Simulated assay, not measured.
Amino acid sequence: MTQSDSELDAHVNENWGNAERLLEYLGDRRLLTEDHAREDPAFCVESAIAIRSTMGVLMGASTVGPLKTALRDIQRFCREFVSAAGPHGAHFQQDSISFATNLVALRIGVARQVYEVITLFKIHPNREISLLLQLIDSDRRSP
């Protein structure tokens, strides 16, 4: 086993609980799993703000390594979504295409990070996380 492998194993062991908490939390977020046509833009913005905040808490409890990087990236995707929405989600209220496009981008970005986490930590995804991961496959099939 190389130094890098042992460091990665240590990271996984030290952060296992945080990885599980991340997946449980994200699996319970409608923002990431519901059909966008059923979503309210203002609610989605609030949810993205909450996810961003929770990622910050989890980052504070995680050691430096791949999990912290995934948390930071999820936080960035949420920040980009909220920024695109404008004040109080006004832009998304006026432009449903922009809302849908940005929501899909958020979901795909989060799904890619979740995939990295479940692969590294060897965690079996629940139903909601599995639905989120399907976005990666559909994104790859898009022209």
Rank of each mutant, 00 (worst) to 15 (best):
T2H: 06
Q3K: 15
S4M: 10
S4H: 09
E7P: 06
D9S: 12
A10H: 10
H11L: 09
H11G: 03
E14S: 10
W16Q: 03
G17H: 11
G17V: 10
G17M: 04
N18K: 04
A19H: 05
A19V: 00
E20S: 12
L22H: 07
L23V: 14
E24D: 07
E24Y: 14
E24Q: 05
Y25T: 01
L26I: 04
L26G: 07
G27W: 02
D28F: 14
L31V: 12
L32F: 09
L32N: 01
E34H: 12
D35V: 08
A37G: 00
A37S: 11
D40Y: 13
A42M: 13
C44S: 14
E46N: 02
A48V: 09
A48P: 13
A50P: 00
I51R: 09
R52F: 08
R52S: 02
R52H: 10
M55K: 03
M55W: 05
M55F: 07
G56Q: 01
V57G: 10
M59T: 06
G60N: 00
S62L: 04
V64A: 15
G65F: 05
G65Q: 02
P66H: 15
L67F: 02
K68G: 01
T69S: 07
L71H: 06
L71A: 11
D73W: 03
D73T: 08
I74K: 11
I74W: 00
Q75W: 06
Q75D: 09
F77E: 04
R79D: 00
V82T: 09
S83Y: 05
A85Q: 01
G86Y: 12
G86T: 07
Q93D: 11
Q94M: 13
D95Y: 13
S96N: 11
I97P: 13
I97N: 15
I97M: 15
S98L: 14
F99V: 11
A100Y: 14
T101W: 06
V104E: 05
L106H: 08
R107Q: 08
I108K: 13
G109Y: 03
V110Y: 02
A111W: 12
R112K: 15
R112L: 15
Q113C: 05
V114R: 01
V114N: 08
E116G: 01
V117P: 11
V117C: 12
I118A: 13
L120S: 04
L120H: 12
I123C: 10
H124E: 14
P125F: 00
P125G: 00
P125S: 08
N126P: 05
N126Y: 03
R127I: 04
E128P: 01
L131F: 01
L131V: 00
L132I: 13
L132V: 01
L133R: 06
L135F: 03
L135Q: 07
I136L: 13
D137G: 07
S138I: 15
D139W: 09
R140N: 10
R140E: 04
R141I: 08
R141E: 07
P143I: 01
